[in-house]
Write a protein that binds this DNA or RNA. Structure first.
Length: 763
DNA sequence: ACCGTATTCAGCGCG
DNA sequence: TGAATACGGT
């Protein structure tokens, strides 16, 4: 057994070694939080704890995957794989597959994703003849979700005077009713939405003491990652599970709590000690990620928050560069300046695109950055856009699988009953829905026995319905007989989906077809991997499609294997950047009403969350941070005047480098003007987006920017550079402002410099 | 059933 | 501004 503990610093070691009793680890940004979690699990295993007795809960699939991989490296695969490690949702979904019958759910229950929920709630609003402007589907869903998070059932909701009154005052008195209908419809379809997975788990533990006891005994050691992001129901489930052994360890950073808007309750971490009087608290305060400047600047920001656990983050790393402040006239210019700066850093320090990230508050801000990067021919990738499992073609095929597994799954049925088109249109579907509602039966029961009900549908259509039913039934009959991949492929082709997509020869159609192929590959991989593992156990049965589907419903980020290109600048929202790190970070749009967001101005709690968000953004950076703001910005179609964000002022002055007025403005009025004229031609590039990496012809640079000095440079000349000192030009390539020189600097070596930025002095 | 046009909406988004 | 959806006409 390898002595893993020697890899830890003093604070980390203490947190890892305290395996018994309740403990809380407050882990500052970049302080080795994941390290503590993984080493703690590994340490438990080394002490001889049975992996089946360990439960590790994370928020994202990515986090649990990474943790698992790292534990495998530390202690080997067999033990690590048996630890119950996963997201709250996936772990509880698994428990509900086993125990859900107590609540009236079969083990093959469906999981509705947000699109399913939204479609269903829309339909209900319409059926109830309510105005979907007053009852905006998203608003209604948010109310329902908030209720579930706080363990308020539909009945409780309708009987709660305060809630009902609040809805009444908001002019939406029917929300309780909508919630009620929605819950019934989900139940009738044997379906749970994401919130139900938590809500029902809590009910299960609340109402079935034997079940709770069983899992309390099983999970002798519990770890929770990102504890600052837990909501009430998650808090309660964890508390109940840990009630017996109290071997619970929560890890988090109150300063990085940024998901209040979706129900996360920062008080869970702030008040954790109230639940466990003999709690041991550990603080990881040494930052290994960032320069002193970045760490101190971030500290100076977060100091403005009242609600926090005291800690002093420090680092041994070097001082580093000051934070560069970029001031732009418009959002367009901001993009240009950021792109130019990336280009400049790249050339001056020979960096890869991977070293850079641009972070913004809202997705809408990405466009200006994208345009500017395209013009400089810098490849980039936008994170957080349409993920694999949200694509239409994938959802269509998955809907077939869902319906085959659970015939009552109404959202799946509605999605595919006429896809590919088979002449069962909206009118017919409406008749079925009305009848199902009248008879209080599932849609499937109606179409399965269509002759029994007076549907008022012509015989032609009835026979089409019957063909469809027979087809689905024949698939269902093979569910347990065929292996996952064979059945998946059969359904893909026999449903007509493959043919439908194959016939679409547009680039989009082609890519859809490829996506289906990729899904089928994933299923193949799954069934092969799983059979290998099962050989070790006694079970020699085949891997079936429903086993694959159990995992899939909760996946969002298909590991986008980048076949195409791996070196790109990352563009994402600050929220999406949490947990990541980059050498060079650009935080854009630091303006009042944008960052901090306009919605946060009225409450201290919201403002503090915005500040934590900025803190998260800053602490993503290892080497250098640039922050930028624009004085004017197009928002919702019109130009608005912006003030610099209060957050800029909150950074102590000594950490900031103010904009150099001279070089920026003259150049950039020009750039901006040029951009506007260029706009039309850039429209041609439409349609290429999503996760694809985009590179474009360099259409921007020409001789406009070459200055006379650049022209004078010749091979062999002796020059001086601001940073690298004296050197000799070895060669010159390119023209205009794309002109690059390879220079040999004394004591440093060969560097390639873009002359537009390098500002070489001829000696 | 399908297509083009009108209208609306715009905060971050795990599972 | 522009994307997504609703609507209305054929």
């Amino acid at each position: 057994m390898k002595d893993i503990l020697k890899d830890l610093n003093q604070a980390q070691l203490k947190a890892v070694e305290q395996t018994e009793g309740p403990s809380m680890v407050i882990a500052g940004a970049g302080s080795g939080k994941t390290r503590v979690l993984t080493y703690r699990v590994a340490h438990l295993l080394n002490l001889g704890v049975d992996p089946f007795n360990i439960l590790a809960l994370t928020f994202t699939n990515k986090a649990s995957r990474e943790m698992k991989e790292r534990i495998i490296k530390l202690v080997g695969g067999t033990d690590a794989r048996n630890v119950w490690m996963g997201t709250f949702h996936s772990i509880f979904a698994r428990i509900l597959r086993i125990e859900g019958f107590r609540l009236g759910y079969p083990s093959n229950y469906s999981i509705y994703d947000t699109d399913d929920s939204k479609r269903l709630i829309k339909a209900i609003i319409k059926e109830q003849n309510l105005d979907n402007k007053i009852y905006a589907p998203n608003y209604v869903l948010n109310r329902i979700s908030a209720a579930k998070i706080n363990l308020i059932s539909a009945n409780k909701y309708k009987n709660d005077f305060e809630i009902m009154n609040a809805d009444k005052m908001a002019g939406k008195p029917k929300i309780g009713e909508l919630y009620s209908i929605y819950a019934k419809r989900c139940k009738k379809a044997d379906a749970m939405d994401f919130d139900d997975l938590l809500f029902n788990t809590n009910i299960l533990f609340r109402d079935f003491a034997d079940v709770l006891y069983k899992y309390q005994q099983k999970f002798k050691y519990i770890l929770v990652d990102e504890y600052q992001d837990t909501n009430y129901v998650q808090y309660l489930i964890v508390k109940n599970l840990a009630a017996n052994n109290e071997n619970i360890c929560v890890v988090g950073d109150d300063a990085q709590s940024i998901y209040g808007f979706r129900g996360a309750n920062i008080q869970n971490i702030l008040n954790f000690k109230n639940d466990y009087p003999d709690l041991k608290t550990f603080k990881l305060e040494q930052n290994y990620r960032s320069t002193k400047t970045i760490v101190n600047a971030a500290n100076s920001i977060i100091r403005n928050n009242k609600d926090q656990i005291f800690k002093e983050i420090w680092t041994n790393n070097s001082e580093g560069n000051k934070i560069q402040l970029i001031k732009a006239i418009t959002d367009g210019e901001e993009g240009t300046l950021v792109a130019n700066s990336i280009f400049e850093q790249k050339m001056n320090f020979q960096l890869q695109n991977n070293a850079f990230a641009v972070l913004y508050r809202t997705n809408a801000q990405s466009r200006a950055i994208e345009e500017a990067l395209r013009k400089l021919n810098i490849p980039y990738r936008i994170f957080g856009s349409l993920s694999f499992y949200k694509r239409k073609e994938i959802k269509d095929l998955l809907a077939y699988y869902r319906l085959v597994i659970n015939n009552k799954d109404e959202e799946a049925l509605i999605r595919i009953i006429n896809y590919p088109a088979r002449g069962i249109g909206k009118t017919t579907l409406d008749k079925i829905i009305v009848t199902a509602d009248k008879e209080n039966k599932s849609l499937w029961e109606i179409i399965e026995n269509s002759s029994k009900y007076n549907l008022n549908i012509n015989t032609g259509t009835l026979s089409k319905i019957s063909t469809f039913v027979i087809k689905i039934k024949s698939f269902s009959a093979q569910l347990k007989k065929k292996n996952a991949f064979d059945l998946a492929k059969l359904i893909a082709s026999s449903s007509g989906i493959l043919k439908d997509l194959y016939e679409d020869k547009t680039p989009e159609g082609l890519s859809r077809y490829e996506n289906i192929e990729e899904l089928l590959n994933a299923i193949k991989e799954f069934s092969e991997k799983d059979t290998n593992e099962e050989e070790l156990t006694e079970n020699n049965s085949i891997t079936t499609l429903d086993e694959f589907m159990q995992d899939v419903a909760l996946l969002t980020d298909a590991d986008t294997k980048d076949k195409e290109l791996t070196d790109y600048v990352s563009l994402m929202t600050v929220h999406a950047s949490k947990g990541l790190e980059f050498p060079y970070v650009y935080i854009v749009g630091l303006e009042e009403n944008l960052f901090p967001s306009i919605q946060s101005l009225n409450s201290r709690a919201d403002m503090e969350e915005e500040r934590r968000l900025f803190y998260v953004a800053l602490t993503r950076a290892e080497q250098r941070v640039s922050i930028s703001y624009a004085e004017n910005r197009y928002r919702w179609g019109n130009l608005t005047i912006c003030e610099p964000s209060r957050f800029i002022e909150e950074i102590e002055n000594k950490y900031i480098e103010l904009p150099k007025k001279t070089s920026i403005h003259t150049n950039n009025f020009k750039n901006d003007y040029f951009n506007k004229n260029k706009k039309q031609s850039s429209l041609n590039f439409k349609g290429k987006k999503l996760n694809k990496i985009t590179t474009f012809e360099n259409s921007f640079f020409n001789n406009d920017f070459s200055d006379q000095l650049t022209d004078k440079l010749q091979t062999g000349m002796k020059v001086e550079h601001q940073r690298f000192g004296k050197g000799k030009i070895i060669s010159i390539e390119g023209t205009g402002s794309n002109k690059k020189a390879t220079v040999f600097f004394n004591g440093i070596g060969q560097k390639q410099l873009l002359l537009k930025f390098a500002k070489l002095k001829i000696l």
